[in-house]
């Protein structure tokens, strides 16, 4: 098996891994609150997006326009999760302003810097930085809460979500930063993204399953 076939397997597994959180959500569907159902709905949308992106990729059709829209949707979804789960008012404000900045920046990049048909490295890097920061803020708040309340972290859905977000965006940071260079010199390096994406989806699945009794 050559490197490209090997890479393709990774890409397929990664795309299919979006089914994991959806399966997790369906298993515990009866126990999901409104918040949990919203998250599941987002992941259900991600199935369609992931499928279209992968299908276009395999048919050598440029999937970057779809990817750019997905990127905005993804950021909005994760930022919303942190906004609702972080309690401290100043950090809530920070997420609100940071998100305003992000969307303005993303539109600016799309209009003036990058074409919609190429990978939006700058926006992706800013998204990664912000979401890593939000997850660290969440963990900081969680560690403070743990000192005063008796909570089992493995039973907190947002803990697993944040771990997945931190892992995904931190691991892929330089991959996003140098994507345009990498795609020219070693495109198969994107396999790292596939592995990390699969692992993140697995963590998102746990974020649903941890609600089980």
């Amino acid at each position: 098996m050559d490197l490209v076939s090997f890479y393709n397997i990774f890409v397929i597994i990664s795309a299919a891994s979006i089914l994991l959180p959806n399966m997790g959500g369906l298993i515990v569907f009866k126990r999901l609150d409104i918040e949990g159902k919203k998250i599941l709905a987002f992941f259900a949308i991600f199935i369609i997006v992931e499928f279209v992106i992968t299908w276009l990729g395999f048919h050598k059709i440029n999937n970057m326009p779809m990817f750019s829209i997905f990127e905005l949707l993804e950021y909005g979804f994760f930022a919303y999760l942190f906004y609702t789960n972080i309690k401290e008012l100043r950090w809530k404000k920070f997420i609100k302003y940071a998100s305003f900045f992000y969307f303005t920046f993303a539109i600016f990049v799309l209009l003036f810097i990058r074409s919609i048909y190429e990978f939006n490295s700058e926006t992706r890097v800013v998204e990664s930085l912000l979401l890593v920061l939000f997850s660290l803020l969440y963990f900081n708040e969680l560690s403070k809460a743990l000192q005063t309340e008796q909570i089992s972290i493995k039973k907190i859905p947002m803990f697993w979500m944040s771990i997945g977000i931190l892992f995904y965006f931190m691991s892929n940071f330089f991959l996003f930063l140098f994507y345009n260079e990498i795609s020219k010199i070693t495109p198969t390096l994107w396999a790292i993204h596939s592995v990390v994406n699969t692992a993140a989806n697995f963590l998102f699945m746990i974020s649903f399953l941890c609600r089980q009794k």
Partner: peptide, 9 residues
């Protein structure tokens, strides 16, 4: 680049 990507992961 490869080193940076792997290191960040």
């Amino acid at each position: 680049v490869v080193f940076l990507v792997l290191a960040s992961a």
